[in-house]
Design a protein around this nucleic acid. Structure first.
Lengths: 116, 116
DNA sequence: ATATTTTGCTTGACAGATTTAGCAAGCGCT
DNA sequence: AGCGCTTGCTAAATCTGTCAAGCAAAATAT
């Protein structure tokens, strides 16, 4: 019932086969060498570049987030943090560049003092 | 008119300074060598590993999506919310309620002072 | 049946990411 | 003045992603 964790390689190979494309066809479309594609699909690359993964996602029409997750990269979830930040931004309002610099320095001062 | 794009290096250095931490302090917490941190902050690394960026985001309390974007990586669509309004807050990082009040007060002080 | 093209794959070499070891300048303490 | 510790930085070394070139088997063509 629960689907097993698929490897990036399996996922990519499936996606390519679904599209009915060959390694060299993908190479033509993405500028990624067929050699490297082969290694990718056999899980021989530990940390493939997100840009390569993104190109493949666009070509295959699969989710970039999913693929990044499968590749072992942290996937952005901006649920809580950004809301807080939006709130803060609202309270501070628009700042001049100078004000911003002073604020940052003041905050650094606050924290370096407190931690000792 | 608001903020031009900041470099990853500037962003990371600011975030670290806001936290009041030293390169070696960050190294202790993240297992990322201070040497590499230095190169990161002076923009000498073209494609830093997302895992490293993620560790730094967690430590600094800044948005992972923002940092990934600054690093030139494609970011999943639903993370593409308006960064302009959150830009400053992202740079400041997560604040305690106390810190936030202090900052707002300090900003008020700055402005009253300037207004002559 | 054999030559030609196409397929997936491996090897060698290169570039770039990351670390280890070390440097010189700065700071507190006596 | 010195000494010890910390700071940020860099040079060299190591590891790893990426590609160009080539290979053997399968498909295709003649």
């Amino acid at each position: 019932m629960v689907k097993q964790k698929q490897s990036v390689g399996e996922f990519l190979r499936r996606a390519r086969q679904v599209k009915g494309m060959t390694l060299r066809a993908v190479e033509r479309e993405t500028q990624i060498s067929n050699a490297y594609l082969s290694q990718l699909e056999s899980d021989k690359i530990g940390q493939p570049s997100p840009l390569k993964l993104h190109k493949l996602c666009e070509l295959y029409g699969v989710s970039y987030s999913v693929l990044m997750g499968l590749a072992g990269y942290p996937v952005p979830d901006h649920s809580l943090i950004d809301l807080k930040q939006v709130g803060l931004a609202a309270r501070l309002g628009a700042l001049t560049g100078e004000e911003e610099t002073e604020l940052v320095e003041y905050l650094a001062f606050l924290r370096s003092r407190r931690r000792r």
